[in-house]
């Protein structure tokens, strides 16, 4: 008798486990492009777009960040956002290097989604290898109108001083 009851218990438990495991959701992510190449001159700034999509049938929250935190001149337009099922979003990556930066830089743009329900949670993420080349500007001086105006003003002041010095 006890064996029968035990077997009913085990069968029921197995059913329960099978059904409960079959109800789990997946957590997914879609991203384009798969790599980013950027070539810029210092003093310049450019932007690149990436598309993030939610391929699942549940709403998910996404985080976007640059892996190498020491490169602080990479900014993300939307570092955190939510996407409904099968929705997608374009995110802009701004590259605005400091004036003294020159050379080759490698980092990865990371996009990750995770559903936190307590316990040990699983997330899915994508890393986009990003290569940035910063060249020294080919313009000798920055052509900012204010700077040009200041230079002209300075030259005029020098000329006035010289002419006064000659008169005296």
């Amino acid at each position: 008798m006890k064996l029968k009851i035990l077997s009913i218990g085990i069968v029921s438990l197995l059913c329960c486990l099978l059904i409960s495991t079959s109800c789990v959701y997946a957590i997914g992510i879609g991203v384009n492009p798969t790599k980013i190449e950027a070539e810029i001159e210092n003093y310049e700034s450019i932007q690149k777009n990436i598309t993030v999509s939610n391929p699942e049938n549940i709403g998910l929250e996404f985080h976007v960040y640059a892996e190498n935190e020491s490169i602080d001149w990479i900014k993300i337009s939307d570092p955190k956002f939510s996407l409904q099922p099968n929705q997608k979003k374009e995110v802009t990556i701004f590259f605005t290097p400091h004036t003294e930066e020159v050379g080759e830089f490698n980092t990865k743009i990371c996009i990750v989604t995770l559903k936190s329900d307590g316990g040990f949670n699983i997330g899915s993420g994508v890393k986009i290898p990003t290569h940035i080349t910063i060249k020294k500007t080919t313009t000798l001086l920055p052509l900012d109108p204010i700077i040009i105006a200041l230079i002209i003003t300075g030259l005029l002041v020098i000329l006035i001083c010289i002419s006064r010095f000659k008169k005296s």
Binding site: T21, V24, Y25, A26, I27, G28, I29, G30, V31, N32, P33, T34, T51, S53, P55, E56, K115, D117, G119, F120, N121, I122, G123, S124, V126
Partner: peptide
Amino acid sequence: RPGIRFSVTPTSLDF
């Protein structure tokens, strides 16, 4: 299709 699209199942593990 996006260049990268992948899913992980399940969303949590109970040991």
